[in-house]
Amino acid sequence: MEIIKVESVTKIYNTGAIAVKALDSVSLGINKGEFLVIAGESGSGKTTLLNIIGTLDNPNSGKIYLENNDISRYSKDELSDLRLNKLGFIFQAYNLIPVLTAIENIEFSMMLLGIPESVRRKKALEIMNDLGIDELANKKPNQMSGGQQQRVAVARAIVNDPLIVLADEPTANLDSKTGENLLDLMEKMNKEKNITFVFSSHDNKVINRASRLIMLKDGQIINN
């Protein structure tokens, strides 16, 4: 079942007098339960494509459909609701909220959904337990290692049972063992909970685990 459809998306960045075409009429579909990797060299447009799929950035032209709804014309608030309810994000730099503890970071998006504190605390603890990071509950990001922070970021991304998790080079800042462990974890989530994962990465560890691989070069898909 196709949950996301990207149709002829073009993105141009204007850096001073020079216009750079980051994506050039890209079209693709993503099915439920995929473990999809968008790969390519630096500057190929993989992060841009991930950001546009995740509604974090607007394309210059083209359309994005999520569950057959054209989300290209959504307002800022509608996109926020969409990200909150349907999408999960994992960033290269972890991007946890520094003033919140691990459990509070995980609870944050549930709080935005208006879930009562007792319910969200219970669910956050369950997920932390599943991911084996329950001992980190009361630690702040600066008290955790990169691998630990990224695991908390994974927990934050999946806590609202999203339709799809978008992970932008999630292993780039981790050593190879920690990276493998993290990928094991995400693979497990994919298989056990049927969560769709879309990665942008040029890391072979990630690419080797892909159920589908999309190769980008100069903003165009060269291999799907």
């Binding site: 926020s80 609701d81 309810n85 994000f89 991007n95």
Partner: peptide, 16 residues
């Protein structure tokens, strides 16, 4: 600003 970007990406509305 970067942190606000993260909050927005999680789904926090600009008014919040």
């Amino acid at each position: 600003i970067q942190e606000f970007g993260v909050l927005m990406s999680i789904g926090m509305k600009t008014k919040e």
